[in-house]
Design a binder for these strands. Structure first.
Lengths: 346, 346
DNA sequence: CTGAAAGCGCTAACAC
DNA sequence: GTGTTAGCGCTTTCAG
């Protein structure tokens, strides 16, 4: 209980038990602390000989600069926070991945928070995040409370919202219009001669918007919606299989199904095979997200492609522009292209 | 270029352009800064009336405590860092998810870093992370350089390694023996009467260890390995499909395939169907990871189940125990149970 | 229960 | 090029 926290710890080279700090390095190298700071942050302002001496001391002592202290002093954290609802979704995973890479490349560390789909306590989340004084923020979607929204404004740091394009922006924005995705999928399927439609969607704000866009377009064109089923987010393959079973009674005639995720589309296609429903002859299926699963399944599944990686890169570029001192611009809101990829299920 | 960074920003309630700090709140509430600090951190040591006044001031001014400053002063960051190679893998995604939940519940924020599979510059990674002075660390696997290893030791914070169990632990460890997984899968397939085997594996340290365990056991039992194919990490469905095509020439006789990931197993099963190879009659397939895909595919795929969520929870429990002041214990190394789930492909 | 003083480890700003 | 001084915004510690 009260024994030392770790007995496998080795005394640091300085012989002290406390982590080595900038003054230790300075003393070891025979320079002022400020010079050590310069060697680390602005090496070109220090003479080569001094640099060498300091570097040697740093290595010998195993000095790891305290970024907390540095950040407090310089009022820059060189850290940006990113918030996504999930990382299980390949789209978000690739956004996060490419965003992190781009930011790290520019000298910023990314700390990732996973907030889930139920907008639980966004105020507490933001308070914790902003309390660490990130230099910038990437957030997903826009289902935030007014108080949370206000916190972001008052934080006075660059903010980029991704994934959605419909709401009033806090600052910068990069995403697409989910209703239009639904509408375009509808148009695509109408163009294939369908007149009976079904929707299978997760109950999250954006997915519901896509479904609405789909239903509206289809209805306007005189089509019938034979099933409009919602499941709790996140999407699963199992939900796709169940959805198809729910659709079965309506499958006496040809029908086209739009799923809010490729996972559900895959589930529907699997279950269709099990149930003896022929795809695409009796049932057309279109997913959303262009997961590897859709491309590599047999039959490959028609879906909507989103450029996750390019979204992440663009988001990073937006933030870096601001962090470099540039002000707001006209093109601070950017449409991410999406595109229907036609495969064997339609 | 030189215009103000954001013109949509609203002056904060204090009327100043600088973020409100503890002294502002203190002044507004007519108390000392220390009292504000107590209201936030140890509310039970402040009288209800004072608390109310301070809370009101906090809300009115929109005060967001600067955790950077607090951390510097208290030498506690209430933050823990987690490092995983990828979040695309459902196993890691669920570990991260449950770990974050557990830690947040205990008042710690988790910042996630994705390091990839090529152990690029682990020293730089750790330096950046440790520079933020996390109170504890979760890391994946153990392919770290000696220098990086030394940094972790000298950081003198609790460290838990997950996912692997084979190496010398830095501190605490929770995982399983990958070689034994391979061996048990081999035993399972041998028990089904197989005598010809194939392995399809990603070229990452742990996957290779599983493959080795598999091959050794199979060979020792007198079985033949007809194919031992490696692909660059991470695993993909496409690699599974290609792997099966590579295996095709050997499929004149019955064969059992072990894949280092369910994604590859799925790819193999899909391609087998395309090629007219009957599963499991002509080819048995076993994956690894128990992704939803395996359970929900038709045919459902035999695989190895890993308790991702429980790994994350246990890792959190380990760290929290140490953070609460407890010293090392006997059971600081914990085996995570794994189990073969038999389904239709074997 | 509340306050005052001192300092966490670093860097901005200004000397030299 | 390099050093000195004075904080960054908070909490520890000790007094009341």
């Amino acid at each position: 209980m009260s024994e030392p926290v770790r007995d496998l710890s080795i005394r640091s080279a300085s012989g002290k038990n406390t982590p080595v700090k900038i003054t230790d390095v300075a003393a070891a190298a025979g320079v002022a602390p400020m010079t050590v700071s310069r060697v680390i942050n602005t090496p070109d302002r220090v003479s080569p000989e001094t640099t060498a001496r300091v570097r040697e001391a740093i290595d010998r002592l195993g000095y790891v600069p305290n970024l907390i202290a540095g950040g407090l002093s310089s009022r820059k954290s060189r850290m940006v926070a990113a918030i996504v609802p999930t990382i299980a979704h390949p789209m978000f995973a690739s956004v996060v991945q490419s965003f992190s890479d781009s930011m790290r490349h520019a000298g910023y560390q990314v700390t990732l928070s996973i907030c889930g789909y139920e907008d639980a306590d966004d105020e507490a989340l933001f308070r914790g995040l902003l309390g660490r004084r990130p230099d910038a923020l990437l957030i997903t979607g826009s289902g935030y409370s007014p108080a949370a929204w206000q916190m972001l404004i008052e934080a006075r740091i660059p903010v980029v919202e991704i994934w959605d394009m419909s709401s009033r922006p806090i600052d910068m924005m990069i995403g697409f219009d989910h209703a239009r995705v639904g509408a375009e999928v509808a148009a695509f399927l109408l163009g294939k001669g369908h007149d009976r439609f079904a929707v299978l969607t997760a109950r999250d704000a954006r997915a519901l918007t896509r479904a609405r866009g789909f239903v509206e377009t289809v209805t306007k064109a005189g089509g019938t919606v034979v099933l409009d089923q919602q499941i709790p987010a996140p999407s699963t393959i199992a939900a796709g299989r169940e959805g198809l079973r729910a659709l079965l009674p309506s499958l006496d005639r040809r029908c086209a199904l739009f799923c809010s995720s490729d996972l559900m589309a895959f589930g529907a296609v699997v279950e269709a095979r099990v149930q003896g429903v022929r795809v695409p002859e009796h049932l057309a299926v279109c997913g959303f997200g262009n997961f590897e699963l859709s491309a590599m399944n047999e039959p490959p599944i028609t879906t909507v492609n989103l450029e996750g990686a390019s979204t992440g890169r663009s988001a990073a570029a937006f933030l870096l522009r601001r962090l470099a001192g540039e002000g707001p611009r006209e093109d601070d809101r950017m449409q991410v292209p999406f595109r229907i990829i036609e495969r064997a299920t339609t």
